[in-house]
Nucleic acid binder design. Structure first.
Lengths: 209, 209
DNA sequence: TAGATTGTTAATCGATTAACAATC
DNA sequence: TAGATTGTTAATCGATTAACAATC
């Protein structure tokens, strides 16, 4: 049993969570580090090390309870709590995030969507109307918001991120192709879709046929 | 000068490429490992090690030519070539990818979009009409396609990926929440958006204010 | 009990950082 | 030339894997 969870482990937690959910759905109630490792392409040793970062509750000779482990990891990640998001930018990506079912299914609910383009303001996206970004400050002050989704051009993403940081938001899911610079009590996840394609291109070019 | 490029370096290449493009746009023609490192939050030592994986062409006492380095990294990643993509699934994500400007700007062009839902077939997305997935085989045989973008439900992503693999496609950009299993000459990049949100949730929960 | 499997410590492997001679 | 900065080797750090006593 240990305290510190390394960045490498943090990035694996969602995969554990996903596989454990799948196992639950398949009716599997118990699994060993060996079994889970085979399923996830990890060594049994790594599975045990990872799980022991946040408390040992396997049983020797038996393994782990699937539901117990799933619940525990979900709790560590905070996905047992509800998160409220606002989307900044009603372009293709902003709208796709607003319309996706999977995020609210996992507790990440879109509360509002904003844009500065007069052509987009008032547009209906799901059950929401796109609001004028000028209303942003008022909205955040009047409503509980956890996460800002930045679906904006590079040119304004950094500035707007700082603005909503000043309004008190501390979670940032950034789709603009830059690395946000924010005070260190802000949590940021950058999603660089373009970079993923570039990595794919590299792998295609360098894979031996 | 060395041959092998580790996974860790590969994942950093797009960031180098992005920063070098920015520097070029700013009119900077020369930069040292120290300067580039500061800009990217890397140590100068790491920058030099990374760049030396694929051939040393800095100059002592001077640094690196921004445009030469950018071009070279672009070539290594293969983004100086054009890629043709087909999108499988015309839901929110599939359409957002089809409509985005940034991918074609980087040489990744969407050639066609497919779905099996009769309500979606024929629908106009950008300049393309959504085609019946039954036409997929014929289409791939008649057109040069590099990359399949999987914007499908989990339930059919794996099966369809294998199908297009059999048609000869070797690049897969997967948005479905599963890890594709394909023969090892296939190049796969998984984009697990849900997992990014879960990591964000973790960081928000565990950041010290 | 015997077999299975954990939690944990030790060994290995790989990636990052530091150091410095070579040289522009 | 003197100063700056590379390419590269060596040192450090962290993450993964192996091993095994404890125990269900």
């Amino acid at each position: 049993m240990a305290g510190y969870i390394s960045e490498a482990v943090i990035k694996r937690l969602p995969a554990y969570y996903r596989h454990l959910k799948e196992l639950e759905a398949e009716g599997v109630t118990q699994i060993s580090s060996k079994g889970l490792g085979e399923r996830m392409d990890f060594t049994a040793s790594q599975v045990r090390q990872d799980i022991n970062c946040f408390g040992g509750f396997g049983r020797q000779g038996y393994g782990y309870s699937v539901s117990e482990l799933r619940e525990h990891i979900g709790h560590i990640m905070g996905v047992d709590e509800r998160h409220r998001m606002i989307i900044l930018g009603a372009g293709n990506i902003g709208r796709a995030v607003a319309l996706a079912d999977s995020f609210p299914q996992n507790g990440f609910v879109t509360a509002a969507i904003f844009d500065s383009d007069p052509h987009k303001i008032g547009m209906q996206v799901d059950a929401m109307a796109v609001q004028d970004i000028a209303e942003l400050k008022r909205y955040v002050e009047e409503n509980a918001v956890d996460i800002a989704v930045l679906a904006l051009p590079v040119s304004c993403a950094q500035q707007l991120a700082h603005e909503v940081y000043d309004y008190g938001i501390r979670g940032f899911w950034n789709f603009a192709p830059l690395d946000l610079k924010l005070p260190k009590d802000a949590a940021v996840v950058n999603v660089h879709l373009d970079e993923g394609l570039e990595v794919l291109s590299f792998r295609m070019k360098h894979s031996q046929p």
